[in-house]
Structure formats: structure tokens, C-alpha cells
Design a protein around this nucleic acid. Structure first.
Ligand SMILES: Nc1ncnc2c1ncn2[C@@H]1O[C@H](COP(=O)(O)OP(=O)(O)OP(=O)(O)O)[C@@H](O)[C@H]1O
Length: 775
DNA sequence: ACCGCCCTAATTTTT
DNA sequence: TTAGGGCGGT
């Protein structure tokens, strides 16, 4: 059985599992995905299962494509016939076919989160919600939670205990009705409506459950309750479910995923066989030990026993830096050295971070030195304004009932249809019901509701839409898009709108046209609807190119399931990783730790960790402390490459240096030394000795004070710290509550007793230091 | 209806 | 730092 070659006995057992539910629970890099793929090949090749009798769920479309390709390679005649896709893509596929049973058109519109948000915004305005209390964002996430726990608007309304919750429930109700009336589904609907379809229509459920003799799920730890229902329903007849996952890699609980799906597997699927894989094939033992050690700090977990028979491996390198620019320079220099000194090429290197905002500095550093890179995620291509405008047009062309998209394009490019006209038009439209195209074609009605001149302009706009709609009936997506750009003179609009950015935005338009072309030539359904669907379902991970030789940048979340020889984990600071919003809760910190674990276990050869002592946030500098997770790494796995600069404000040193520091002998123990000596000279000297690189110097110079020793201990503005008693000429005596920024930009929040709190620019405040608070 | 100015709030993570 | 909303002038 050729497909089994090279598998270890446990993997083999998992692949060859005969019938009934099976759970493969195993740590990172143990070959779970490989088992899943091989099992599909084996089922088809050896068990006589037809490719279309197989349903497999992956986390991204790219993973699906890869799985499809690999199965294809192992079993050529199976090409493209199995159902392999994400939960969302599979939901869409079922809903396109059977959605009419729920009252949806075959080409229902898929709302992305942005569309949902605009709809919610409109609804909140309509119900006079205070935008300060009810942000569209919060309501959107509440609605998502409702949907994922299959709570209807009525139920939500009944359960509401506060005025606030009532409003949210009200908005939820309107949102659901509006969506339905527009013939649109949001992301959650793609799952929830599928579940509804299967639950309410036995015949459909039975038909598909009978068809799918085998159901397989990758990354099972990150599925949500609705997805579990979907899996159950679709595997109900044959009960052949193979799920693989790793509870230590559950990192999406914030969007409703629950690891309980996996931990209670045997309860949900009685008689399930559980198989564990313990040999890691990906990483060096050093990386593995580091990862194991860190994750062992989580209390809520079923332990694992991961091992590797690879030998040796370089230690994890830990680089302390001054700020994010400095950090980026270190990363860039280290990459240069990797490329020069090892046989690594750029595509073997990934730079990971917790938040997309962190990519900026890294990107700048790489660009300056012309190291080619790709950024995955962040402000995605399909989120650019010009791209979204055009997509909105396409959505309206396909589905004129989509009022959210219609509202977006009504006056883009500007055609004299401003706020007033827009409001009148939509009020009338909602009053009448029916298609927007009907109203746009009714000149008398338009004139009556919006006035003569605006009415004419609306009618003209309607004509354009109708023309394009007719075109779309028998042309492909690319043709429609090209005609659209011409018809609305979109490029002229870009030029007029802002000549400075016009070029770049025109490029984005060209890129979109290009993407449509590519789609139409590659897809077996080149229609507009199919194109819009592919865009809506596109995941960040899908955009990872692994054929071109470039360094890759992405968030840790996006990196799940991938592997790279060299992994840089940047921003290892408390507040970032673990993220500030998770620090309060133990469970949340554990999820952050899993995130760190995921990051570490992406590495095949070596990990590089960076941690900055200051970081720009919202424009002003804030000091950072090292990530608590760094302290959880086994000492002998880590090599510190730079000295840990102490925060200018005497920030705590969470981790002790791991190596004797030749320059400074043993180094005085200063574990808990802080506050009493805000800026100790020897610490500054330590730092100064290390701050040699040009980038560092430059950054320091720009922020108004270099680390050159002469202004270190005299400059008064550097020695403010929280808890200090100070005197102000006018305001009197106060206590410093907060220190933000450095140098000229340093701002202090000082509490002056009865007189309240003041935020002062340290440079101008002329404060006299009375004394420091005792620790 | 449109434009430009100022203010503010916000960045976790994504299908 | 930046995007989006509110406001007031044209
Ligand atoms: N039996 C084996 N022999 C050699 N290499 C293997 C074997 N099984 C898996 N591998 C390799 O180990 C690496 C990790 O495999 P895979 O991605 O399937 O693991 P995983 O358990 O899904 O990891 P993760 O949970 O981190 O996503 C891959 O490069 C794969 O080719």
C-alpha cells in the first residue's frame, strides 16, 4: 500500500481506522494533516470509496487546495471530485444548491464583516441608539455570538436584562430581517443557515449524510458549536468521522470556537476511537523542548508527550531591542546574515507578530534594504476603498436588492446624489419594497420623492446599472468589471478625488481587474456570482505564496498549520503577547500562551525572539516589559544575543539574564529593583554600551536624547516615574500617576489631590521633584 | 451638495 | 498615527 510509506505505526493506525468515529489528538508537527490527507487517498484507493463520498473540512481554502492537490497526486482519478473545503465554503456550496428551501436565491449575496457593520450602523441610527454606548463593532460581535449559540432575536430579547441588552436584541432582530429581505447572508449565516437547512429539512440532511460515507475535519480544536452540529448532521448516516486536532493550538475562542468539541468528542460521538501521535517531525529537539516547556505552564490541558528523533539544533536566539524600529533593524540584519551564512533562502523565513499594526516597522526595514517580502493580512487588498467600491457595484449588479452596497455606490463617483436624496430614496424604497431597479426606472416616483433634478440623476444611474446587469447575464466577471470601470468613469473619479494617491489606487483597480481575469480563466464557473463568492470567502492564509522567494510576514493566528525553517517571533512583550486585553483573565492568558506555542512550533530549524522596551502606540511612545512567556522558556534552549536594556523608567526586569555578561561581570542582581532608583546610572551605562548600531543611534537622536552618557543622568525629564511626589508652580503638590512617552514628548498624568488630575507635558511643567514613593 | 477642517476614538486575533 | 464623523462655510 504505497500511500502508507513512511508513516509511523500510530499514524498508520489512524489512517487505517476502519469504520466509526475517530479522533486524532496530537501536538504540533506530528503529522495530523498528513494523516488526514493520506486517509482520504487510502479510502479512495484501497477501500473503494468514491471521491464524491468524501467530505473534508480544512481551516483555509489554501489548505483545502493543498489537500486536494495531494490527494490528486496520490490518486489521480480523484481529481477535484471530493468535497474538500472550509466550513464556510462548504456551507455556501450547500446553500447555493438548496437555499431555495430557506427562501434564498441561488445567487444570494455574501456580506463580509464590513457590509455587516454598515448595515448595523444604519440600524443603530434608525433605532436612535447612542453610538457611544452601542458601537457597531460591539453589536456586530454580540450578534455573531447570538448566531453561534443559535439564539433567535426573540430569545435574545427575552433574555435581555438591561436597557442595553434590549437595544442590542432589537438591533439583532432588525439586522436579521434586513439581511433576509436583501437576500444576503453574513459569514455566520453561512454556517447557521446550513445548520438550519439540515435540521429543518430531513430529506436534504439524509441525502447528503447518505452521500458522505466519510467526513473528515482538520484543526478540530477551533470549530464552533454550530460547526459541530453541521458535522454531526452530515455524518449521521454512516458515522464515519475522522477529526484531528490539538487542544494546545486552540486560538480562536474569541470567535466562538470551543475546544470542548474536541475534549468531549467521545460524548458527542459514542464509541469513538482516540488515537494519539507523539512523534514530531517538524522541529529540532531544542525548539520542541522550548515549546513543550512553555505550554506546560497551562493548567487547563491534557498533557502530551512530544518527542523528536532529530538531533541537536541551534538555541532560540533572544534579541532585546530599544523600540520597534530597532527591533526591525535587528530582524532585518539577522535575516541578512541567515541568507549569507546558511543555505536558507528568503522563502524559508517567516516573521510573526501578534497584531497587524506591528508589521509597519518591519516592513519599512525590509523595504529600505530591498529584501523582498510579502505581507499576509492586515489591510487586505479587498478592503481598500476603491476595491470595495467596485465590488459593491458588482454586488448590486448581481443582486439589486442589496441596499447596503447600493448605498455605498449611489454617489461614488459623485453624481449629485447626496445625503438628502439618498435618504429620501431609501425611505421610499423600503416603503415600496421590491427591487431598487424598479424604483430607479420609475421617473415619476423618483421626481415625486427626490425632486426633479435629483430624480433625473437617479434615473440615469439606474440606466447604467441596468446596462451592466444585462451585460452580466452572459459575460464573465472580468468583462463586467472592465465595462463597469469604463461606464462609471471610475479612473477619472480617482484622479479628481485625490491626484496624489490616484496612481496607487488606479493600480489597485488594475489589480482587481487582473484578479477577475485570472479567476475567469481558471475557474470552471467564470460568472460574476462565482467571482464575488470567491472574493468573499478568501481567507488571509489563501494569499500566502510559497512559490516566490520572499520573506513572509503575518500574524501568529494566520500562521497556524504552516511551517518554516526560520521563524522570527517579534514583540515578545507583556501587553502584546500576551495581549493587554487578555492579561486580566487566566483563561485568556492561557489562550495567549497557546498562541506563543503555535508560533514556536512553526519552526523547523530555529526560532528568533525579539522584545522591545518601548513601542509607539497611537503615535506616542510607551514603555514595555518583556513577555512573561520568555521567562517560561528553558534556560539552556535560549541564547541572549543582546543585553536587556532596562526601561528608561526603571521598568521591571522580568527575566534575569541567562548568561554571564562578559562586559559587566556577574551583573548586580536587580531583579526587583525599581521605582527607588528610576534611572540608575549603571543600568544606563549597560544599555549605552550596547546601543551601538546606527539605527539605534538614529532613533535615539530623533527622539531628542541619545544614550550618550552625558545627558543620561542629568536630564531631569528622564527621571520621572509613577508614584513620585512633585511640585508644580501653579498647581501645587501632586503624585505622578502615569508616564507616557519619552524626551520632549514625555507626558505625565499628575494627581493634585482635590484639584484633580492633569496631563502635563514634562518639558514645560517645570516640576520640582520632592521625593519618590517608597516601594 | 460638497468640501475642508477639527476632533475623537481606536488596534487584538479572522472565516 | 489615522480614519471617520460632525460642523460650518461656500
Ligand atoms: N511519518 C512522517 N515521516 C516524515 N515526515 C513526516 C511524517 N509525518 C509528518 N511529517 C512531516 O511533518 C511535518 C508536519 O506535518 P503536519 O503539518 O501534517 O503536522 P500537523 O500535526 O498537522 O501540524 P500542526 O498541528 O502544527 O499543524 C510536515 O512537514 C510533514 O511532511
Amino acid at each position: 500500500m504505497f500511500v502508507l510509506v513512511g508513516l509511523n505505526p500510530q499514524q498508520r493506525e489512524a489512517v487505517l481506522h476502519p469504520e466509526g468515529p475517530e479522533l486524532v489528538i496530537a501536538g504540533a508537527g506530528t503529522g495530523k494533516t498528513r494523516v488526514l490527507t493520506t486517509r482520504i487517498a487510502w479510502l479512495i484507493e484501497e477501500q473503494g470509496v468514491q471521491p464524491e463520498e468524501i467530505l473534508a473540512f480544512t481551516f483555509t481554502n489554501k489548505a483545502a487546495r493543498e489537500m486536494q492537490d495531494r490527494v490528486h497526486r496520490m490518486v489521480p482519478h480523484a481529481a477535484g471530485r471530493s468535497w474538500i473545503g472550509t466550513f464556510h465554503a462548504t456551507g455556501v456550496r450547500l446553500l447555493r444548491r438548496e437555499g431555495s428551501r430557506l427562501g434564498y436565491d441561488r445567487w444570494f449575496t455574501i456580506f463580509d464583516s464590513d457590509d455587516s457593520r454598515s448595515l448595523i450602523k444604519r440600524i443603530l441610527k434608525r433605532i436612535n441608539a447612542d453610538p457611544k454606548q452601542l458601537s457597531p463593532r460591539a453589536v456586530a460581535s454580540a450578534i455573531s455570538t447570538f448566531k453561534n449559540s443559535s439564539l433567535t432575536p426573540e430569545a435574545a430579547s427575552n433574555e435581555a436584562v438591561s436597557r442595553f441588552e434590549e437595544k442590542v436584541a432589537e438591533a439583532y432582530g432588525l439586522y436579521v430581517t434586513e439581511l433576509k429581505s436583501m437576500g444576503a447572508m453574513d459569514f455566520d449565516d453561512l454556517i447557521c443557515n446550513t445548520v438550519q437547512l439540515l435540521e429543518e429539512h430531513q430529506d436534504i440532511q439524509e441525502r447528503y449524510a447518505r452521500q458522505f460515507r466519510h467526513v473528515l475535519v482538520d484543526e478540530f480544536q477551533d470549530t464552533n458549536p454550530q460547526q459541530l452540529v453541521m458535522v454531526k448532521a452530515l455524518s449521521a448516516v454512516h458515522q464515519n468521522l475522522c477529526a484531528v486536532g490539538d487542544d494546545d493550538q486552540s486560538i480562536y475562542s474569541w470567535r466562538g470556537a470551543t475546544v470542548e468539541n474536541m475534549l468531549n468528542f467521545e460524548e458527542y460521538f459514542p464509541g469513538a476511537q482516540v488515537i494519539r501521535l507523539e512523534q514530531n517531525y517538524r522541529s529540532t529537539p531544542v525548539v520542541l523542548r522550548a515549546a513543550n516547556e512553555v505550554i506546560a505552564h497551562n493548567r487547563r490541558r491534557k498533557g502530551k508527550n512530544l518527542w523528536s528523533d532529530r538531533s541537536g539544533g541551534p538555541p532560540l536566539e533572544l534579541w532585546w531591542s530599544e523600540d520597534e524600529e530597532d527591533e526591525a533593524a535587528q530582524v532585518r540584519d539577522r535575516i541578512r546574515r541567515l541568507l549569507a551564512e546558511t543555505d536558507a533562502s528568503r522563502k524559508h523565513i517567516v516573521i510573526l507578530y501578534r497584531t497587524n499594526a506591528q508589521s509597519r516597522a518591519l516592513e519599512d526595514a525590509l523595504r529600505r534594504e530591498s529584501i523582498p517580502y510579502q505581507i499576509i493580512g492586515g489591510t487586505r487588498f479587498y478592503e481598500r476603498r476603491e476595491v470595495r467600491d467596485l465590488l459593491a457595484y458588482l454586488k448590486v449588479i448581481l443582486n439589486p436588492a442589496d441596499r447596503v452596497s447600493l448605498a455605498r455606490i449611489l454617489n461614488v463617483p459623485r453624481r449629485g446624489l447626496g445625503k438628502t436624496t439618498s435618504e429620501r430614496f431609501f425611505t421610499e424604497l423600503e416603503l415600496r419594497g421590491g427591487s431598487a431597479l424598479n424604483l430607479l426606472g420609475d421617473k415619476a416616483a423618483l421626481a415625486a420623492t427626490c425632486g426633479n433634478a435629483p430624480g433625473k440623476r437617479l434615473a440615469r444611474f439606474g440606466e447604467t446599472l441596468k446596462l451592466l446587469r444585462r451585460l452580466a447575464e452572459n459575460s464573465d466577471a472580468a468583462a463586467v468589471l472592465r465595462q463597469l470601470v469604463k461606464a462609471v468613469e471610475y479612473e477619472d473619479f480617482l484622479e479628481k478625488d485625490d491626484p496624489i494617491t490616484a496612481d496607487e489606487r488606479r493600480n489597485n483597480v488594475a489589480e482587481l481587474v487582473n484578479a477577475a481575469h485570472e479567476f475567469t480563466s481558471e475557474s470552471d464557473d467564470p460568472s460574476l456570482g462565482a467571482f464575488l463568492e470567491s472574493v468573499a470567502l478568501l481567507a488571509d492564509g489563501d494569499r500566502v505564496r510559497d512559490t516566490t522567494d520572499v520573506v513572509t510576514l503575518m500574524t501568529v493566528h494566520t500562521a497556524k498549520g504552516l511551517e518554516y525553517p526560520y521563524v522570527f517571533i517579534t514583540g515578545c512583550e507583556d501587553g502584546l503577547l500576551p495581549h493587554a486585553s487578555s492579561i486580566e483573565e487566566d483563561d485568556a492568558v492561557e489562550e495567549e500562551r497557546r498562541l506563543f506555542y503555535v508560533a514556536l512550533t512553526r519552526a523547523q530549524e530555529q526560532v528568533f525572539l525579539t522584545s522591545a522596551s518601548m513601542r509607539r502606540r497611537y503615535g506616542s511612545m510607551e514603555s514595555c516589559i518583556p513577555s512573561r512567556f520568555l521567562g517560561e522558556l528553558p534556560e539552556d534552549c535560549v541564547a541572549e544575543m543582546t543585553l536587556q536594556p532596562t526601561s528608561l523608567f526603571g521598568g521591571p526586569r522580568l527575566t534575569e539574564p541567562r548568561r554571564p555578561r562578559p562586559e559587566f561581570g556577574e551583573g548586580a542582581p536587580r531583579k526587583h529593583k525599581r521605582r527607588d532608583t528610576p534611572v540608575s546610572t549603571d543600568v544606563m551605562a549597560d544599555a549605552a554600551a550596547f546601543l551601538k548600531s546606527k539605527a539605534r543611534q538614529k532613533a535615539a537622536d530623533r527622539s531628542g536624547h541619545g544614550f550618550s552618557d552625558h545627558d543620561v543622568d542629568q536630564s531631569p525629564e528622564m527621571s520621572y516615574h509613577v508614584g513620585m511626589r512633585v511640585e508644580h508652580e501653579m498647581l501645587g503638590i501632586g503624585i505622578i500617576e502615569e508616564v507616557e512617552g519619552i524626551g520632549e514628548l514625555m507626558r505625565l498624568t499628575v494627581s493634585f489631590g482635590e484639584d484633580g488630575r492633569k496631563r502635563l507635558l514634562a518639558r514645560f511643567a517645570r516640576l520640582r521633584v520632592l521625593d519618590s514613593a517608597a516601594d
